[in-house]
Design a protein around this nucleic acid. Structure first.
Lengths: 231, 231
DNA sequence: CATGAACGTTGCCCTTTGACAAACTTCGGA
DNA sequence: TCCGAAGTTTGTCAAAGGGCAACGTTCATG
């Protein structure tokens, strides 16, 4: 396998404080791999034998219920650590990670977790910070789920994806990874039918434009209003 | 202030691995305090200047939305650490903690956090484990919220409280702390009216008995069925 | 022991949204 | 280029549950 270039990591928070040779050592332990859209990186309940860093692409993290439905808990953007169950003293992954778009992922065997934490304080700090941020995000989803109506939740979710991953186009902000009506339904606890109706409605009002697996927010401001309004 | 007895901590996971003198040192830094039912221990957004251990009682952790509604995220039982924002590199508390019943709480100034983590590995491990468990609980609430109907959520929530805090009585399992219909509504994302109707109905069927701020589960099995059934 | 606040119950109505059904469109691969 | 799978749209219907309103009950407190 070709040697990975150190510049891959030097700009990222977990590693930005480190000396060149340290980054080299970390990279030499890493495995790089490409995942096609839809491919699982790890699955809920399985042995947490690796931890990961997303270099490029997008990853969807979801949980399944006993009855087979799935709920999408969060999305991972490039530069973020994930599958860091070990930070929480867990032996198994608590959720399933699937490439939402074609993705490039670095991974390390979990036995390196403790050495990394002990040797590289910035890695430890960044890991726990990531966990804290994610806990915050999930709590935010929970309160949203508990207090907002379906239309507001879908609006907020579309807006969040656009903010996290958006790239500007002529028409507005485009969500940078493929997302189906069903995906959005799984994020918001509703059905693909309802999501389809909402998007169709918004499209007629010029708030979004959407095609197959693809959403562009053309009027973010009105979407913000929708996500908050109570009527 | 009277010296606290070492036996308070020796049985608890974060401290059970420690030598007597270590426990003594930890206790000498601690402040003990009683909170009446309904009193706030810390509030969302405030400076995270202390971390806490619940010795006796129950604590409700909640989050407020911009529009004033509140969502109860989880409950803390005796023996658990809480307010450990610092474990996640946070400067402020991400939620509000309120005594659900009269409670006895130990607290330490946050400047001791790093020394504790560094000096006492079992404390560090237990803290991160606690965070992991809580993340799991919140994820479970989220998926429940996203996939289950109101009756199932309320049933599951009552059951969870009974399991976590329940004590056996002649009639069945009694939730050990005061809980109003509104509290349950805030946990399940519904209204106190709907909760009241559900509890009344269940009472008629002999599944629960409830009085003011008080719930006894008389037929846990049927409640389990309700919490899962899909019809 | 009187009073008000907090908590709980219940009835009625109406909106939201899930369920079911059917058809249409897009896309990738044989 | 054709076909099937995956994704999307739309219509109709019914039920769940929230909003509103009124009233009942319990409890703490002066």
């Amino acid at each position: 396998m070709a040697k990975l270039d150190e510049s891959l990591l030097t700009g990222l928070p977990p590693f930005s404080q480190l000396e060149r040779p340290q980054v080299r050592a970390i990279l030499d332990e890493a495995t790089s791999r490409r995942y096609d859209e839809g491919k699982a990186i790890f699955r809920e309940g399985f042995d947490a034998d690796h931890f990961f860093l997303l270099l490029d692409g997008f990853v969807r993290v979801s949980r399944a219920t006993e009855t087979g439905e799935q709920v999408i808990v969060l999305h991972i953007s490039p530069g973020q650590l994930f599958g860091i169950a070990r930070a929480l003293q867990r032996e198994t992954y608590p959720a399933t990670a699937i490439a939402a778009a074609e993705s490039i992922v670095l991974s390390w065997p979990m036995r390196l977790w403790a050495p990394f934490i002990d040797s590289y304080p910035s890695f430890a700090a960044e890991s726990y910070k990531t966990v804290g941020l994610r806990l915050g995000e999930i709590q935010a989803s929970l309160t949203e789920m508990a207090t907002k109506a379906v239309e507001q939740r879908v609006a907020a979710t579309v807006l969040r994806m656009a903010n996290q991953s958006g790239r500007k186009t002529d028409d507005g902000i485009e969500i940078a990874f493929p997302v189906t009506r069903e995906n959005i339904a799984d994020m918001t606890g509703t059905t693909l039918h309802t999501v389809s109706r909402l998007l169709s409605g918004w499209q007629k009002q010029g708030i979004v434009k959407s095609t197959r697996k693809h959403v562009v927010v053309t009027d973010p401001h009105r979407l913000v209003v929708l996500s908050q309004s109570n009527s």
